[in-house]
Structures are given as structure tokens and as C-alpha cells.
Computed example of a mutant assay.
Amino acid sequence: MPTWKEITTRNPDHSQNYADRWDRIAAEGNDIYGEARLVDAIAPRHARILDAGCGQGRIGGYLAERGHDVVGVDLDPLLIDIARHRYPEASWKVADLAERIDVEPGFQVGVCAGNVLTFLAPAERPLALKHLYEVMAPGSRLLVGFGAGRGYPFPAFLEHAEAAGFEVSQQFSSWDLEPMKPNAGFLVAELRK
């Protein structure tokens, strides 16, 4: 799997195409907020929420519009610019999850959706989980979701999450909480600090 940096280096239009794709999906009447609704359901009202790998702000923007204090981070400056324009009520920062995340720690809830971790180099994935652990509050929950067959086997991810300090409290095969089954094509893990 190529990293996001490799993809955007090869195709400078990739980030805009990615944002446009989500706009098309929404314009066709499809639901693009399932992950955000799940996060909203588990978060206390007016929670401090981290959207890690936020892209153009689809999830974090939804949560900010519902009164949460959202900080979104992404390594793609173009996507962060789109997020800032569309959802000014949230805070958006350019940041690489594989490096220390320059945000005030203490997030009550976090979300890392959209295959974000699979777009990091294999050696960067454990670092990203360590950095996410560092900014989450004690007792917090981080929801991470990504598809199978993207070069990050689920057992390796779970091992990395535990090595970072998280407790893997639940695993599902979809954002609508379908039970995890052997050979599932998708993983949503709830990690607790």
C-alpha cells in the first residue's frame, strides 16, 4: 500500500479529487456521516474530540456542528484548508500522526476513520498510535476503523495499540457495530486509555 505522501507526490491532484469524491457521494444522497454519528453517540455533550486524519473535515465538522470542541489533524494542507473553510467552528491543524501531534492533550474521545493508519508507512503506524495515546485523556476512548487487505493486518494493529498503552475494549466489523467475525473485511476498534 502506498502512503498518502507517496500518492500525493505522484498525483498532485489526488487530495482535491479525494475531497470532490466525498462531495459527489453526498450529492448523490448517500450517508457520509455514519462514523460521526457513532462518535457523537458515545461522547459526552460538548466533549473535546480529536479527529485524527481528518481529511476535509467530514467527521469533525459534523461533530463540531453538534456542539463538540473538535480538533482535526491531517498531514494534507489542501484538505485542512477545505476543512477550515467549510467548518470554521472547529480547529484544524496540519500534523503528521507519525510525529508528535502539536495539540493540547486531554481529548475525551477520538476518531481515526477512513483507512488513515493504512496510509502510513508500516514503521510509522506504531508511532502514530503512541502519539495518539499521548494526547488522549485518562478514561478516554479512541475509535479506529480501516479495511482488510490494505497492508495492515488486524492482529498487528491490535498488538501495536496495546503496545502504545491502549486497552482494546471492543471490536466490530463496521461503523454500525456489526459483530466482529473471522475473516471480516473491516475493523472498527474501540481503544481505551
Rank of each mutant, 00 (worst) to 15 (best):
L177D: 01
G61T: 06
Y18G: 01
N17L: 07
H46Y: 10
V111G: 11
L63T: 12
S173L: 02
A164C: 12
R21H: 11
F154D: 00
C112D: 04
D20M: 08
E124C: 15
F107L: 05
P179H: 00
F154K: 10
P2L: 06
D76E: 15
S169E: 14
A98M: 06
A36C: 11
P138M: 06
I7P: 05
P122I: 14
P153M: 13
S91V: 14
D96A: 07
R58Q: 11
S174R: 08
L191I: 05
G151K: 12
V188C: 10
S91A: 15
R48V: 11
P155N: 04
H14A: 14
K181P: 03
V94W: 13
A113Y: 12
V109S: 07
L142C: 04
G165N: 02
I32Q: 09
R141Q: 12
G61L: 07
E159F: 11
M136H: 08
P77M: 10
Q170V: 01
H160T: 09
R192C: 03
R10N: 13
A64V: 13
Q108M: 08
A189E: 01
F166R: 12
C54L: 09
I101L: 07
E6L: 00
L142V: 03
G61R: 06
I101S: 02
N11P: 05
G165F: 08
E104K: 14
T9C: 00
N17G: 03
L117A: 09
P105Y: 13
I101N: 00
A90N: 03
W22H: 10
R58F: 06
T9K: 15
V144P: 04
G147L: 03
V39Y: 12
V71C: 12
D40L: 09
E124L: 12
P12W: 07
D76N: 13
H160L: 03
K181L: 03
L129Y: 12
L120K: 06
G67Y: 11
E134W: 01
I59Q: 08
S140L: 07
A27E: 09
G139M: 06
P77R: 10
L191H: 08
L117S: 10
I25N: 07
L79W: 10
R45H: 12
Q16V: 04
D51R: 02
R45Q: 10
I80G: 06
E99G: 10
L143D: 04
I80R: 03
V71N: 08
L129C: 13
E190F: 13
Y62M: 07
S15M: 01
L177N: 04
F166Q: 12
S15I: 00
I25K: 11
L129F: 15
L120M: 06
L50F: 14
N30D: 14
G110Q: 06
F157Y: 15
A64G: 15
N183S: 09
A47E: 06
I25H: 05
E124K: 15
I80T: 06
A123R: 15
G29P: 13
N183H: 14
S140D: 03
T118D: 06
Y133F: 15
E89T: 13
F107E: 04
H131S: 01
L75I: 10
M136P: 02
A27D: 06
S140N: 02
N30P: 06
D76W: 08
V109D: 05
P179S: 07
L97Y: 09
L63R: 13
L127N: 11
D40Y: 05
A36V: 07
D40V: 01
F107P: 02
V73K: 01
